[in-house]
Amino acid sequence: MTGPEDLMALVAAHGLPVVGLIAVVEGPIVTVLAGWAASGGLLPLWPLVATVVLADLAGDLGFYLLGRHGIGWVPDRLRRRLGLRPDRLDRLAEQFRCRGGRILLLGKLTHSAGALVLTAAGAARMPVAPFLVCNLLATVPKSLAFLALGHIAGHTWERIETWIVNGSWMLLALVAMAALIWWRRRASAA
C-alpha cells in the first residue's frame, strides 16, 4: 500500500480520483487516510463520501464477478479439490437465496471474511440488484465510520490499521464460534 505521505501528495495533486482508485483495492485504511485529508481541507467531504462508497461497491462487485464467472475458468480437477462440486454450489445458492442479505452484511462487517463471502455470492449466482442493495446498506455506515475515524484520529493511521485487522479477525472468530454453537445445538436436537 502507498504510505500516507505519498497518498497525501497524490491527493493534493489529483484529488478524489486517486482516492477512488486506491479505495477500490484497499478500502478501510485508505478511507481513514482520506478522512484525515478531508479534515486538513485537502478533500471536500460529501464528494469524498460518495467516492469511497462507490469505490467500495466497485471492489465488491469485482469479487462478485470473480465468483460468478471465475469458477468456469478453474479446471474440474482443482474444483473438486476445492470442494466446488455441483451439489455444494447448489447448497450455497440455496443459502444465498434464503439468507443472502444477512450473509453479505456479516461478511462486510467482519471484513476478514468479506472477499470470500462476496465471491461466494457470485458463485451462488445471487441476483446483482439484491447483492448491490445489501452491500450498499453495509458499505454506507462502514465508510462513514472509517471517514469519521480518519477525521478525528487519522494521524494515528498505523494504529488504526492494526485495530481494523485485529478487530476484523476477532469478529470473524466470534461469528465462527456462534455458528459452531448453533450448528452443534441443531445437530444435538435432531
Rank of each mutant, 00 (worst) to 15 (best):
E161M: 11
V52F: 02
R159K: 13
S112C: 12
A148E: 11
L16N: 00
I71G: 07
L172G: 12
P130C: 08
T156V: 05
W36P: 01
T31R: 03
L57Q: 13
R97S: 12
Y64S: 08
A37V: 10
E94D: 14
L104I: 15
G59H: 07
L92R: 08
W183M: 07
F63I: 02
G20Q: 04
E5I: 14
A38D: 01
A124V: 06
V49W: 07
T2E: 11
A123S: 12
M177D: 08
A113N: 03
I29A: 05
T156W: 11
L89I: 15
A34C: 10
R88A: 12
G67E: 06
G35T: 04
L149D: 00
L33I: 04
G59Y: 08
A115D: 11
L33C: 07
V32W: 00
S143I: 04
V175I: 14
H155G: 15
L136V: 04
L66K: 04
V25K: 02
V18L: 06
A178V: 02
R68V: 02
V11Y: 04
T110K: 04
K108T: 12
L174S: 10
S112R: 03
V165A: 09
R91Q: 14
V133H: 11
W182F: 11
L149S: 06
W36S: 14
V175K: 06
L104F: 09
C98I: 10
A190D: 11
R85Q: 13
R91N: 06
Y64Q: 08
L147C: 07
L118R: 10
H69D: 07
T156C: 07
H69C: 09
G35K: 05
R88H: 15
M8Q: 15
S168G: 14
P28H: 14
V140A: 06
L89D: 06
L82M: 12
A55P: 04
R159I: 12
L66Q: 06
A120L: 13
L116P: 05
L65V: 13
P44Q: 08
V74D: 08
L137R: 05
S188Y: 02
A34I: 00
L171F: 12
E26M: 09
M170P: 00
A138P: 06
